[in-house]
Design a protein around this nucleic acid. Structure first.
Length: 206
DNA sequence: ATTAGGATCAACT
DNA sequence: GTTGATCCTAATA
Protein backbone atom coordinates (compact mmCIF):
# COMPACT_ATOMS: atom_id res chain seq x y z
CA UNK A 1 0.00 0.00 0.00
CA UNK A 2 1.28 3.43 -0.89
CA UNK A 3 1.65 5.89 1.95
CA UNK A 4 0.61 8.82 -0.23
CA UNK A 5 -2.75 7.12 -0.81
CA UNK A 6 -3.44 6.80 2.90
CA UNK A 7 -6.76 8.12 4.10
CA UNK A 8 -8.23 8.11 7.55
CA UNK A 9 -11.24 6.11 8.62
CA UNK A 10 -12.70 4.91 11.87
CA UNK A 11 -11.65 1.41 10.89
CA UNK A 12 -8.04 2.51 10.58
CA UNK A 13 -8.15 4.23 13.96
CA UNK A 14 -9.16 0.87 15.37
CA UNK A 15 -6.21 -1.11 13.97
CA UNK A 16 -3.56 0.15 16.39
CA UNK A 17 -2.32 3.40 17.89
CA UNK A 18 0.89 3.65 15.85
CA UNK A 19 -0.67 3.49 12.36
CA UNK A 20 -3.50 5.67 13.65
CA UNK A 21 -1.04 8.33 14.81
CA UNK A 22 0.78 8.17 11.49
CA UNK A 23 -2.47 8.53 9.54
CA UNK A 24 -3.71 11.42 11.67
CA UNK A 25 -0.82 13.58 10.42
CA UNK A 26 -2.20 15.85 7.73
CA UNK A 27 -5.79 15.36 8.84
CA UNK A 28 -7.93 18.38 9.57
CA UNK A 29 -9.95 19.38 12.59
CA UNK A 30 -12.82 21.79 12.07
CA UNK A 31 -14.13 23.69 15.09
CA UNK A 32 -17.14 25.98 15.24
CA UNK A 33 -16.00 28.82 17.47
CA UNK A 34 -17.36 32.15 18.59
CA UNK A 35 -16.44 34.51 15.75
CA UNK A 36 -16.26 31.82 13.07
CA UNK A 37 -14.84 28.49 12.03
CA UNK A 38 -11.27 27.39 12.72
CA UNK A 39 -9.67 24.69 10.55
CA UNK A 40 -6.28 23.19 11.45
CA UNK A 41 -3.98 20.58 9.94
CA UNK A 42 -2.34 18.16 12.38
CA UNK A 43 1.46 18.15 12.22
CA UNK A 44 2.48 16.49 15.50
CA UNK A 45 0.90 13.63 17.48
CA UNK A 46 1.82 10.98 20.05
CA UNK A 47 0.53 7.43 20.44
CA UNK A 48 -0.54 5.99 23.80
CA UNK A 49 -1.62 2.37 24.10
CA UNK A 50 -3.35 1.53 27.35
CA UNK A 51 -2.70 -2.16 27.62
CA UNK A 52 1.10 -2.28 27.60
CA UNK A 53 2.25 1.36 27.73
CA UNK A 54 3.17 2.57 31.24
CA UNK A 55 3.04 6.20 30.03
CA UNK A 56 -0.64 5.92 29.05
CA UNK A 57 -3.31 7.26 31.39
CA UNK A 58 -5.21 4.01 30.89
CA UNK A 59 -2.32 1.76 31.89
CA UNK A 60 -3.66 1.08 35.39
CA UNK A 61 -7.23 0.56 34.33
CA UNK A 62 -10.39 2.47 33.67
CA UNK A 63 -11.19 5.59 35.76
CA UNK A 64 -13.61 8.50 35.65
CA UNK A 65 -10.93 10.52 33.86
CA UNK A 66 -9.77 8.08 31.19
CA UNK A 67 -12.92 6.15 30.27
CA UNK A 68 -13.02 7.60 26.76
CA UNK A 69 -9.76 5.79 25.96
CA UNK A 70 -11.67 2.54 26.50
CA UNK A 71 -14.57 3.51 24.25
CA UNK A 72 -15.05 3.39 20.46
CA UNK A 73 -12.51 5.07 18.15
CA UNK A 74 -12.88 8.62 16.88
CA UNK A 75 -13.93 10.29 20.14
CA UNK A 76 -12.24 13.15 21.96
CA UNK A 77 -10.47 12.37 25.24
CA UNK A 78 -9.94 15.74 26.98
CA UNK A 79 -8.04 15.92 30.26
CA UNK A 80 -6.91 18.70 32.59
CA UNK A 81 -3.21 19.08 33.48
CA UNK A 82 -0.98 21.25 35.65
CA UNK A 83 -3.97 22.88 37.25
CA UNK A 84 -4.41 25.07 34.21
CA UNK A 85 -4.42 23.44 30.79
CA UNK A 86 -6.51 21.06 28.73
CA UNK A 87 -5.04 18.51 26.35
CA UNK A 88 -6.94 16.51 23.74
CA UNK A 89 -6.61 13.00 22.34
CA UNK A 90 -8.47 10.99 19.75
CA UNK A 91 -9.52 7.56 20.98
CA UNK A 92 -8.27 4.58 19.00
CA UNK A 93 -8.61 0.80 19.00
CA UNK A 94 -11.91 -1.10 19.07
CA UNK A 95 -14.51 -0.46 21.78
CA UNK A 96 -13.22 -2.00 25.00
CA UNK A 97 -9.48 -1.69 24.23
CA UNK A 98 -7.76 1.41 25.64
CA UNK A 99 -5.72 3.62 23.32
CA UNK A 100 -5.47 7.21 22.12
CA UNK A 101 -3.42 9.66 20.10
CA UNK A 102 -2.47 12.96 21.77
CA UNK A 103 -2.87 16.00 19.53
CA UNK A 104 0.37 17.94 20.04
CA UNK A 105 0.48 20.59 17.32
CA UNK A 106 -1.25 21.87 14.21
CA UNK A 107 -1.05 24.52 11.52
CA UNK A 108 -3.95 26.92 11.09
CA UNK A 109 -5.55 26.51 7.67
CA UNK A 110 -8.32 29.06 8.26
CA UNK A 111 -9.57 31.46 9.51
CA UNK A 112 -6.40 33.15 10.66
CA UNK A 113 -8.17 36.17 12.14
CA UNK A 114 -10.56 34.01 14.15
CA UNK A 115 -7.64 31.88 15.36
CA UNK A 116 -5.68 34.93 16.56
CA UNK A 117 -8.76 36.03 18.46
CA UNK A 118 -8.70 32.83 20.53
CA UNK A 119 -4.91 32.74 21.05
CA UNK A 120 -4.10 36.37 21.84
CA UNK A 121 -0.71 35.57 23.42
CA UNK A 122 0.66 33.87 20.29
CA UNK A 123 3.60 35.87 18.97
CA UNK A 124 3.50 34.29 15.53
CA UNK A 125 1.03 32.26 13.50
CA UNK A 126 3.18 29.17 14.05
CA UNK A 127 2.54 29.51 17.79
CA UNK A 128 -1.25 29.50 17.47
CA UNK A 129 -1.42 25.72 17.95
CA UNK A 130 2.18 24.70 18.78
CA UNK A 131 1.81 22.48 21.86
CA UNK A 132 -1.11 20.36 23.07
CA UNK A 133 -2.61 22.90 25.47
CA UNK A 134 -2.32 25.71 22.93
CA UNK A 135 -4.06 23.55 20.34
CA UNK A 136 -6.83 22.75 22.82
CA UNK A 137 -7.22 26.45 23.64
CA UNK A 138 -7.39 27.42 19.97
CA UNK A 139 -10.11 24.86 19.27
CA UNK A 140 -11.90 25.65 22.55
CA UNK A 141 -11.63 22.07 23.83
CA UNK A 142 -12.68 21.76 27.46
CA UNK A 143 -14.33 19.30 29.83
CA UNK A 144 -17.67 19.50 28.06
CA UNK A 145 -16.06 18.20 24.87
CA UNK A 146 -14.86 15.02 26.53
CA UNK A 147 -16.22 11.98 24.66
CA UNK A 148 -17.35 14.10 21.70
CA UNK A 149 -17.79 12.04 18.52
CA UNK A 150 -15.45 13.64 15.97
CA UNK A 151 -16.99 11.63 13.13
CA UNK A 152 -20.49 13.02 13.72
CA UNK A 153 -21.20 15.82 11.21
CA UNK A 154 -23.36 17.58 13.79
CA UNK A 155 -20.55 17.79 16.38
CA UNK A 156 -19.06 21.23 17.06
CA UNK A 157 -15.62 19.75 16.32
CA UNK A 158 -15.07 17.34 13.42
CA UNK A 159 -12.21 15.26 12.04
CA UNK A 160 -11.66 15.28 8.27
CA UNK A 161 -9.12 13.30 6.18
CA UNK A 162 -7.24 16.27 4.73
CA UNK A 163 -4.25 15.94 2.44
CA UNK A 164 -2.13 12.84 3.23
CA UNK A 165 1.47 13.47 4.30
CA UNK A 166 4.05 11.65 2.12
CA UNK A 167 6.12 9.07 3.97
CA UNK A 168 9.37 10.94 3.42
CA UNK A 169 8.04 13.98 5.28
CA UNK A 170 7.18 12.06 8.46
CA UNK A 171 9.63 11.89 11.39
CA UNK A 172 9.39 9.89 14.60
CA UNK A 173 11.03 10.16 18.01
CA UNK A 174 10.47 9.87 21.76
CA UNK A 175 7.37 11.40 23.31
CA UNK A 176 7.58 14.77 25.02
CA UNK A 177 7.46 15.09 28.78
CA UNK A 178 7.03 11.41 29.63
CA UNK A 179 9.15 9.54 32.16
CA UNK A 180 7.91 5.97 31.73
CA UNK A 181 8.82 4.31 28.43
CA UNK A 182 10.75 7.44 27.47
CA UNK A 183 12.60 5.73 24.63
CA UNK A 184 9.62 4.50 22.65
CA UNK A 185 9.60 6.49 19.38
CA UNK A 186 5.85 7.00 19.45
CA UNK A 187 5.85 10.69 18.56
CA UNK A 188 5.14 11.51 14.91
CA UNK A 189 5.58 14.87 13.24
CA UNK A 190 5.75 16.54 9.82
CA UNK A 191 9.35 17.43 9.10
CA UNK A 192 9.94 21.14 8.65
CA UNK A 193 6.63 22.40 9.95
CA UNK A 194 7.11 25.58 11.98
CA UNK A 195 4.22 24.51 14.21
CA UNK A 196 5.97 21.42 15.60
CA UNK A 197 6.72 21.86 19.31
CA UNK A 198 10.24 21.72 20.71
CA UNK A 199 11.32 18.39 22.14
CA UNK A 200 12.60 18.25 25.68
CA UNK A 201 13.09 15.38 28.05
CA UNK A 202 11.00 15.47 31.14
CA UNK A 203 13.89 14.36 33.32
CA UNK A 204 17.47 13.24 32.90
CA UNK A 205 17.89 9.50 32.28
CA UNK A 206 18.84 7.46 35.34
C1' DA B 1 18.99 32.70 23.74
C1' DT B 2 18.23 30.03 27.54
C1' DT B 3 16.46 29.18 32.16
C1' DA B 4 13.68 29.37 36.40
C1' DG B 5 9.43 29.96 38.78
C1' DG B 6 4.51 30.08 39.16
C1' DA B 7 -0.13 28.65 38.32
C1' DT B 8 -2.92 25.10 41.27
C1' DC B 9 -6.34 20.17 39.48
C1' DA B 10 -6.42 15.25 40.03
C1' DA B 11 -4.17 10.78 40.19
C1' DC B 12 -1.34 8.30 42.73
C1' DT B 13 2.16 6.88 46.81
C1' DG C 1 2.64 15.01 49.94
C1' DT C 2 4.36 14.61 45.14
C1' DT C 3 4.24 14.79 40.28
C1' DG C 4 2.45 15.54 35.89
C1' DA C 5 1.19 13.75 27.96
C1' DT C 6 2.11 22.45 30.00
C1' DC C 7 2.43 27.43 29.04
C1' DC C 8 3.66 32.11 30.16
C1' DT C 9 6.46 35.68 32.20
C1' DA C 10 10.46 37.52 34.06
C1' DA C 11 15.19 37.29 34.87
C1' DT C 12 19.84 36.24 33.36
C1' DA C 13 23.55 35.99 29.52
Amino acid sequence: MRADRATLSREQLAVDVLPAARLLLGCQLVADRPGGQVVVRLVEVEAYRGSDDPAAHSYRGRTARNFVMFGPPGHLYVYFVYGMHFCANISCLPDGEPGAVLLRAAEVVSDLDVARLHRPTARSDAELARGPARLATLLGLRREHNNLDLTDPTSPVRLLPGEPVPADRVRTGPRVGVVEARDRPWRFWVDGSPAVSAYRRHREPA
